[in-house]
Computed example of a mutant assay.
Amino acid sequence: MATQITGSTRILGIIGDPIRQVRAPEVWTAMFQRNGVDAVCIPMQVTAAGLNAFLEGAKALRNFAGLIVTIPHKPASLSQVASPSARARHVGAVNVIRVQDDGQWAGDILDGVGFVGGLKARGQRVEGRKALVVGTGGVGTAIAFAIAEAGAAEVAVFDMAEARAADVAARIGKTGVPSRVAAADAGDFDLIVNASPMGMKPDDPLPINLDRLKPGSIVADVVVHPRMTKLLTAAHERGCFVQPGTHMMDAQIASMASFFGFEGGAWSPEAIAQAVAA
């Protein structure tokens, strides 16, 4: 049954550039229907140059539940958030923001929470693993810090922006978990994460060299379309456990729903699967 939009319908936006690859509108709108919430999720393509103006103007919308923030706006949006969570300040990015009663943005970063939660829900451990995270934008940095907090033995990072990767490695090192800048090579790592956009397009090359990939390793991707990227397909063929980007998204929806004030109802990955299939 199609969603009926009324004068009371609240809007949850998702901003990014590009935006066509996101799965959030279909998932959130299906979940709103399932849980009896009068709201819809709308994709909004916003350029980097227009981000600040958009965020300032969006504060005026009184039926706005908030925004999910995706590539490339997670780090830049933090500067517009008056009340970021301690986690967002630590990571240097936000992926959810909402307008407070004082008219200012509050924000948090839940990607890392969702990533680790998705692995644990599928019976995979993070503790003691040597991890490589490729891509140190907002999502990659959040995942790297979450992996460190979950007890990884080491968290190495790679980014084409070498200075940014070095900064993330240094900040993770201050938490007490060994961290360094590494090549985009599976090497001797047993938890490997592509947190870059590489893999969205059919002709994208592999973001990570898998020549030395060990069977039994965990290989994960943040890309949601396609669900099984070239990286995950190749890793699966080599006997690895793979985690598509949908698991990271689904595992954080309950936390997002709470952040946006959608209390009650069912927001679990199982509920999401049932709602989207309906």
Score class of each variant (00 low, 15 high):
residue 234 A to H: 06
residue 237 E to M: 00
residue 227 R to D: 12
residue 74 K to Q: 11
residue 260 F to G: 01
residue 156 A to C: 15
residue 54 F to E: 03
residue 56 E to Q: 14
residue 225 H to V: 15
residue 4 Q to H: 14
residue 76 A to H: 03
residue 42 I to E: 05
residue 115 F to T: 04
residue 29 T to E: 04
residue 118 G to Y: 14
residue 252 Q to P: 06
residue 43 P to Y: 11
residue 189 F to C: 00
residue 97 I to R: 00
residue 2 A to L: 12
residue 61 L to S: 08
residue 53 A to Y: 02
residue 237 E to K: 11
residue 43 P to N: 13
residue 123 G to Y: 09
residue 197 P to Y: 08
residue 177 V to Y: 04
residue 194 N to A: 04
residue 96 V to T: 10
residue 43 P to E: 09
residue 113 V to D: 04
residue 70 T to A: 03
residue 39 A to F: 03
residue 206 L to N: 01
residue 88 A to M: 02
residue 7 G to W: 00
residue 119 L to S: 05
residue 24 A to S: 15
residue 104 Q to G: 10
residue 177 V to M: 05
residue 142 A to H: 06
residue 106 A to V: 10
residue 89 R to E: 14
residue 250 D to V: 11
residue 154 E to C: 05
residue 161 A to R: 13
residue 91 V to E: 01
residue 182 A to W: 10
residue 267 W to S: 01
residue 74 K to F: 09
residue 75 P to V: 14
residue 70 T to M: 09
residue 92 G to F: 00
residue 72 P to N: 01
residue 64 F to P: 00
residue 266 A to R: 07
residue 272 I to R: 06
residue 63 N to E: 10
residue 106 A to K: 07
residue 102 D to W: 03
residue 155 V to I: 08
residue 86 A to P: 15
residue 100 Q to V: 07
residue 203 D to F: 05
residue 271 A to H: 02
residue 133 V to M: 03
residue 266 A to M: 07
residue 182 A to L: 11
residue 51 L to D: 12
residue 182 A to M: 08
residue 255 S to K: 14
residue 95 N to I: 14
residue 65 A to K: 04
residue 136 T to G: 06
residue 81 V to M: 05
residue 138 G to I: 04
residue 218 I to A: 04
residue 256 M to N: 12
residue 214 K to P: 01
residue 261 G to E: 03
residue 219 V to E: 03
residue 26 E to A: 15
residue 261 G to A: 08
residue 241 F to N: 08
residue 265 G to V: 07
residue 102 D to E: 12
residue 267 W to K: 01
residue 190 D to W: 04
residue 43 P to H: 11
residue 248 M to I: 02
residue 245 G to V: 09
